[in-house]
């Protein structure tokens, strides 16, 4: 049960990373749980925890469609820097969420799910509904674009 509670807290974090908006994330979190409760009451409880993330993912994408849309643009990319960890440490969680929420889907979903550190490789493929080369490209490009953004926002060596 404690594990399931932990999963649900991660579900909120996932919604937050997808939307970068605490109020909307909370709304989708509640909507997802309500649907799970309804299904359970009808004797058709979700089969596994992945159901919650799949459901929340589509709700987040739907909610995202109502606001500003991320553009399909070739963002600048940089090779990962050895000192990237120290650059990232200077960020606030909100900044990470803003960056991920600004990415086009499925990159947005792939990065949000990957950085939750909640899923195995196969689970990731299942929830994102991607093939291994697709997931690989999205994560590789995502890291490099994030590195380029980091270099622009927090130049290496900056205190």
């Amino acid at each position: 049960m404690a594990e399931e509670k932990q999963d649900l807290l991660q579900l909120y974090r996932f919604c937050f990373l997808m939307l970068a908006d605490a109020a909307k994330a909370q709304e989708i979190f509640h909507a997802t749980l309500r649907e799970a409760a309804q299904q359970a009451a009808n004797g058709e409880a979700p089969r596994d925890r992945l159901w919650f993330f799949r459901n929340a993912r589509w709700r987040c994408l739907e909610a995202g469609e109502q606001g500003l849309q991320a553009e399909e643009a070739d963002l600048e990319q940089e090779e990962l820097a050895a000192g990237a960890a120290s650059q990232i440490e200077k960020l606030e969680p909100q900044q990470l969420a803003v960056w991920i929420a600004g990415a086009p889907d499925p990159q947005r979903s792939a990065m949000a799910l990957f950085y939750l550190d909640e899923f195995s490789y196969r689970e990731l493929l299942s929830v994102t509904e991607l093939k291994p080369p697709e997931l690989s490209k999205l994560l590789r490009d995502g890291r490099r674009q994030f590195q380029a953004w980091l270099d622009a926002t927090i130049p290496a060596g900056q205190p």
Binding site: M1, K5, Y12, Q26, A45, A85, I88, L116
Partner: peptide
Amino acid sequence: AVIALARAVPIPKEIIEWVPTESFIA
């Protein structure tokens, strides 16, 4: 480093309180 940052996303009090005690997973 990114995972640590994602883990630092604060969970609102309402969410912690709202998480149900019963399991929804079959």
